[in-house]
C-alpha cells in the first residue's frame, strides 16, 4: 500500500466519522425543526412524518404559525437581551476572577493549595434547590433586583468551574517559560498577564463558552428570582412558559420554534469564537 492510498483511506474514514458524528449531534435538532413547522394536529399524527405533512392527504404542508407567535412575542425578544446581559456578565466575571485563581493554583507555590481547591469545589457540590431558598431570602432581604441577583448567584456555579479548568490549563503550560520570565526580571504578575494569559487564550475561550452556555440555559434560579420582575426573565423561563391558547395546553410547536430561534445566536457566537482559536496560539508560541 502506497502512502498515497493510505492517506486516501484515512481521509475517507475521517469523513465517514465526521458524517456519523454530525447526524448523531444534529438529528434531535432536526426533529425539533421538523416539529416547529407542524400544527398541533400534525404533531399528533401517526406515524410521525419526517417532513410536515397534512394529516389526511399526506401532502407536504408547512405552517409558519409557530414562528409568527415566537417573533410577535415581546417577552421572547426581551428575554434574548436579558439572557445575553446575564450570560455575558457571568462569563466575563467568572473568567476574570477565575483566571486569577487558576494562575495562583496552577503556577504559584504557596501553602494550603489542596484545601483551596477542595473548598472552591465544595461550593458546587450542593444541588441548586438546596441553596435556592437561602439565596431567595438574602436577595429579597437586600432588595437586589433580578438581573444582578442572577449574575451573582450564577457565579456560585460558574466561578468554581472556570477556576478549576483554568488551573488545569495553567498547570499544563511548561514551567520553564514562567521561570525564564522571572529570571528576566518580570514580576510574577507581569508573567501572568503578559505571557501566561495569551498562551491560554484557547482555554479561556473554551472555558468562557462553556460558562456562557451554562448561564444562558439555567432555569430554576431564573424562574424564582424573576418571579415579580417579568421584564427581567431569561430565555429558558420564557420558553418553558410560552403562551398557549388554553391554560393546561402545552404549545409544543411554539416551544420548538422558540428553542430553535434562541439557539441561532449562540451557534453564531460559537462559530465566530471557534474561528478565532482555529489558528491555535499553541505550539509555536509555547516554544518561543
Amino acid at each position: 500500500m502506497t502512502t498515497k492510498t493510505k492517506h486516501r483511506i484515512n481521509r475517507i474514514l475521517l469523513w465517514a466519522l465526521i458524517i456519523v458524528m454530525a447526524i448523531w449531534m444534529l438529528f434531535p435538532f432536526y426533529w425539533a425543526l421538523n416539529s416547529s413547522f407542524k400544527t398541533e394536529g400534525q404533531l399528533a399524527m401517526t406515524p410521525a412524518t419526517f417532513i410536515p405533512r397534512a394529516p389526511v392527504t399526506g401532502d407536504i404542508s408547512f405552517t409558519l404559525k409557530n414562528y409568527e407567535s415566537v417573533f410577535s412575542n415581546q417577552a421572547f425578544l426581551r428575554a434574548i437581551v436579558n439572557s445575553t446581559i446575564v450570560a455575558v456578565s457571568v462569563t466575563v466575571l467568572a473568567l476574570a476572577v477565575g483566571a486569577f485563581a487558576g494562575f495562583a493554583l496552577g503556577k504559584l507555590r504557596y501553602r494550603g493549595k489542596n484545601s483551596t481547591l477542595y473548598i472552591i469545589l465544595a461550593m458546587t457540590m450542593f444541588p441548586q434547590i438546596a441553596v435556592l431558598s437561602g439565596l431567595y431570602t438574602v436577595i429579597t432581604t437586600l432588595g437586589i433586583p433580578a438581573i444582578p441577583s442572577l449574575i451573582l448567584t450564577y457565579l456560585l456555579f460558574s466561578l468554581p468551574f472556570t477556576a478549576w479548568v483554568l488551573t488545569a490549563f495553567f498547570r499544563e503550560l511548561p514551567t520553564e517559560i514562567f521561570q525564564s520570565a522571572q529570571v528576566d526580571g518580570a514580576s510574577p504578575f507581569q508573567t501572568f498577564y503578559m505571557i501566561m494569559l495569551p498562551l491560554t487564550a484557547p482555554a479561556l475561550v473554551t472555558t468562557g463558552l462553556l460558562a456562557f452556555i451554562g448561564a444562558w440555559n439555567e432555569y430554576l434560579f431564573a424562574l424564582t428570582f424573576t418571579s415579580i420582575q417579568p421584564d427581567a426573565r431569561t430565555l429558558p423561563v420564557i420558553i418553558a412558559n410560552f403562551p398557549s391558547q388554553a391554560t393546561r395546553q402545552i404549545p409544543f410547536g411554539e416551544i420548538m420554534a422558540a428553542g430553535i430561534v434562541s439557539s441561532i445566536p449562540l451557534f453564531l457566537l460559537v462559530f465566530i469564537f471557534q474561528r478565532r482559536i482555529v489558528a491555535g496560539l499553541t505550539a509555536g508560541a509555547v516554544k518561543g
Binding site: 417577552a75 418571579s227 415579580i228 412558559n241 403562551p243 398557549s244 391558547q245 388554553a246 391554560t247 404549545p251
Partner: peptide, 12 residues
C-alpha cells in the same frame, strides 16, 4: 398591588 396571574397565553 402585585398580582401574580396565570401563565402567559389566552387567559392572561
Amino acid at each position: 398591588l402585585t398580582w401574580v396571574g396565570p401563565g402567559p397565553g389566552g387567559e392572561f
